[in-house]
C-alpha cells in the first residue's frame, strides 16, 4: 500500500514536470502569438495540476496532515488561466488591428452563413448610444 501511494505520487510529479516542460517548449518554439497562447494556458496549467495532486497525496498519506492550501491554489489557477488567455488574445487582436495587410496578423473571416464579425471590434452599446446623441 505504501509502495503504491509512493508510485502514484512519483508518477504525478513526473507527469506534471513533463507537461510543464512541454508547455514551455511550445511557448518557446511555436511561430506566432496565437499559436503560442495554446501551450502555456493548457499544458502548463495541467502540469501544475498534476504537481498539486501529488502534493495533496504526499501530505495526506505520508506526512499525515491534510492541508487545503493546494486545493485553493488549484482552483485559483484553473479559474484564472482562461481569463489570462482571453485578455492576452484580446490585447494582441487590438494592438495589431491596423496591420491586416501582413499575412501574420490577418484574421480569418467568420465561419457560417451569418454576417457577424469579430465581436471584440464591435462598438459597445455605450459608445453607439453616445454617437446617436
Amino acid at each position: 500500500m505504501e509502495f503504491l501511494i509512493e508510485l502514484l505520487i512519483s508518477a504525478m510529479i513526473v507527469v506534471g514536470g513533463v507537461f510543464a516542460l512541454v508547455g514551455s517548449f511550445g511557448l518557446s518554439k511555436l511561430p506566432d502569438l496565437m499559436a503560442r497562447l495554446h501551450a502555456p494556458t493548457k499544458a502548463t496549467t495541467l502540469g501544475i495540476g498534476g504537481m498539486l495532486i501529488a502534493s495533496i497525496l504526499y501530505f495526506a498519506f505520508i506526512e499525515r496532515t491534510l492541508s487545503v492550501h493546494e486545493l485553493l491554489i488549484t482552483i485559483f489557477l484553473f479559474l484564472v488561466a482562461p481569463v489570462t488567455a482571453y485578455l492576452v488574445a484580446k490585447t494582441h487582436l487590438h494592438k495589431n488591428r491596423d496591420r491586416q495587410d501582413t499575412a501574420q496578423f490577418q484574421l480569418p473571416p467568420p465561419a457560417g452563413t451569418h454576417k457577424a464579425g469579430w465581436a471584440t471590434f464591435n462598438k459597445s452599446e455605450k459608445q453607439s448610444r453616445t454617437e446617436i446623441r
Binding site: 511557448l27 497562447l37 502555456p40 502548463t44 501544475i48
Partner: peptide, 10 residues
C-alpha cells in the same frame, strides 16, 4: 507578458 505569466506558473 505571456512569458512572464508562464514564468509565474512555473
Amino acid at each position: 507578458i505571456l512569458a512572464l505569466d508562464t514564468l509565474t506558473i512555473n
